[in-house]
Nucleic acid binder design. Structure first.
Length: 284
DNA sequence: TCAGCGGGATGTCCCCTTCG
DNA sequence: CGAAGGGGACATCCCGCTGA
């Protein structure tokens, strides 16, 4: 019954977005990513670079972005995930940007924290809610559990999925709207198929047709975003499964990863990293 | 030549001080 | 007091070295 929840140390949405931009701007360049992130944090005590790297970059920013699944890779090969890209690229429109964050956070809440379900059930005072939640999660001390709970509540509040008055309650309008935004069945499936095929061929041109599914996720999500539609990674995966089983004129094969890897595509109980598509008539 | 040792780098986890 | 902004111990990974 008892779940484990992570501590999101850097939990300010705006700060996280700025950090994420650093990881995007200098993808795969760890030192530049670090310098860019550290510039976002004033160095009032004149701390050394090592010091700041350890506490801010490694101790706070990387774990937080990783728990939020906004970056992938370790060490020298860190870059934004497709969801990370969604957030970065949605900033041309403030309302869309807010909805992207909301969708990403909602999906993580559903999968890991499950706070919204509890809040939906009945009204709690904030302290009461922390009490209830702390009994459901693992953690060394009450203090530690409380910190984790408060950080996530703050994030839910920042993306306006919950509101505080006397009690903690759902923000009904945004809650309804995020359910629509994350529903893959409300996306235009024909369009999804077109984008998958187009982006697949673009990406496959330089790699003999072997395409990393994570790159395809990103490319297709950005196409949807141009039309102000939010396609999260979970939705993409759902629709790609549907695409594979409903596209008779293509041979599709999926490639397994060489070792442990992140953000793989789950299909019929197995995890895959790459995809290859060929038109059937070409094979004749 | 290669198992195993050691030390640095990285990421995670829990805790603490300061300040308004 | 709570929020902000770390601090520091620790596990794990990686890689070069070393001595039988």
């Amino acid at each position: 019954m008892n779940r484990k929840i992570p501590l999101i140390k850097e939990y300010r949405i705006q700060k996280l977005t700025k950090c994420l931009e650093c990881f995007d701007k200098f993808a795969y360049h760890r030192e530049k990513q670090r310098d860019c992130v550290l510039e976002l944090y004033p160095n009032e005590g004149n701390k050394t670079l090592e010091h700041r790297e350890k506490s801010i970059f490694r101790g706070m920013v990387i774990p937080s972005l990783r728990y939020l699944e906004l970056i992938i890779g370790f060490g020298d090969i860190i870059k934004p995930s497709a969801n990370g890209k969604l957030i970065i690229e949605s900033q041309f429109d403030n309302e869309l940007y807010e909805r992207c964050w909301r969708a990403v956070i909602f999906e993580i809440d559903k999968r890991i924290f499950n706070f919204l379900e509890i809040i939906k059930q009945r009204r709690f005072s904030k302290n009461n809610l922390i009490e209830v939640l702390s009994n459901q999660i693992e953690g060394a001390s009450f203090r530690q559990k409380k910190e984790r709970i408060e950080k996530w509540l703050s994030i839910l509040h920042q993306v306006e999925l919950i509101k505080y008055s006397m009690d903690v309650s759902l923000n009904e309008d945004n809650y309804k709207q995020v359910l629509l935004d994350i529903d893959p069945n409300l996306k235009n499936f024909e369009k999804f198929c077109d984008y998958v095929i187009d982006e697949y061929y673009k990406l496959g041109r330089s790699s003999a047709g072997i395409v990393d599914i994570r790159e395809l996720r990103e490319a297709v999500a950005l196409m949807f975003l141009k039309e102000r539609h939010i396609l999260t990674e979970e939705q993409f995966d759902h629709l790609l499964r549907k695409f594979i089983t409903t596209t008779p004129y293509l041979h599709i094969s999926l490639g397994e990863p060489m070792g442990a890897d992140q953000k793989l595509f789950k299909y019929k109980g197995k995890f895959y990293k790459t995809i290859i598509m060929k038109r059937k008539e070409v094979l004749k």
